[in-house]
Design a binder for these strands. Structure first.
Lengths: 178, 178
DNA sequence: TAGATTCTTCTACAGGTGTAGAGGAGGCTG
DNA sequence: CAGCCTCCTCTACACCTGTAGAAGAATCTA
């Protein structure tokens, strides 16, 4: 479908050049489509961003590996796969910053809805599951951010390797402790 | 000094509109300076971004409260103050994403250099201080990000309140446990 | 004070950008 | 076959952007 072709190109562009690089014509070029195509499918820039964000959500949702038997392991695998999909995750961060001024984007982007995190915290025996769930969410978000754009981007293990998954797992195990 | 006036306006602009809003003329308007001023002080856009980043580093460094007697408390106060300075911290995130494509920016932006974090982890009795230090850094970064742009931005306590500091402190205490 | 130097303002211009609409290509329905 | 509709491509235009240089104002030095 042409629309997906366009939003996929948009995601790559944002990852490579930042939101500033996201222009109708640049997307046309990136996708190898004739000039004007993007503008026809997404008349306004805001519509283009919304399309990009919807696509991000679809792609990322498809890559969540939860395992009730081994929560830390499942989360580690999930997070590592997001690190591997570097461009997509970078685009997501750019979109989250954008959502600071366009709140309607936020609902689509925010990970691990509060409820699910709190349930997990309760299952693990945390005292104040609501609060602990929020802290766990924050920690997971931080792990990715740190490894992808923060200090860990230069020093951490290479995403996609067993070492990377194990490092994440160790960190997550600590974070999940009640 | 006029240069600081300009970089401060740039920081606010980036916080409010994202990197896309950072243009020479927009900075002029924001700072109340005649058109062309920003362009005179920072001839290229890249120079303007570097100026902005330098200024960010100066401002943020001035707001670190470390207390060897009460590490969690000091960190909580520091993080909360960064949440209060919302614009500055948002601008920092935008700049960090930018640093993904301009690596020379990264050295200025990355918090809690590896060494200091590892020392802290060692002092707290962590087994593998190098790794634990990285995880702690990631966690702290995540706490801010979560509260400022992630899921916690709509549900968390208001920055600058005692409740906010206590919430952060609770989270940090858990994170510092060996 | 006179001259040199730096700081400030203005203006120019070649390109890029968001958005809209006109019209063509191609296929489907009857 | 004709008519219709959807999808696609092209072009237009008003505006914004990065960057550079010219000229004036202010400040310093001797």
């Amino acid at each position: 479908m042409r629309k997906d072709l366009i939003t996929d190109a948009a995601i790559e562009l944002v990852a490579e050049l930042g939101m500033r690089g996201l222009t109708h014509r640049a997307v046309d070029r990136k996708a190898g489509l004739p000039e004007g195509s993007t503008s026809a499918y997404f008349r306004t820039r805001r519509a283009l961003i919304e399309g990009l964000v919807d696509r991000l959500a679809v792609q990322e949702q498809a890559e969540i590996f939860l395992d009730p038997e081994d929560p830390a392991g499942g989360l580690a695998k999930t997070l590592d796969s997001w690190l591997v999909e570097r461009n997509r995750t970078l685009a997501r961060y750019a979109a989250m910053l954008e959502a600071t001024h366009h709140p309607e984007l936020k609902s689509i982007l925010v990970h691990s809805p509060r409820k699910r995190a709190a349930e997990m915290a309760r299952a693990l025996g945390h005292e104040d599951p609501e609060r602990a769930g929020a802290h766990i969410s924050a920690f997971l978000e931080g792990l990715i951010f740190y490894r992808l754009v923060g200090g860990g981007s230069t020093t951490g293990p290479t995403p996609g390797t067993e070492e990377s998954v194990q490092d994440l797992k160790k960190a997550i195990e600590k974070a999940l402790r009640p």
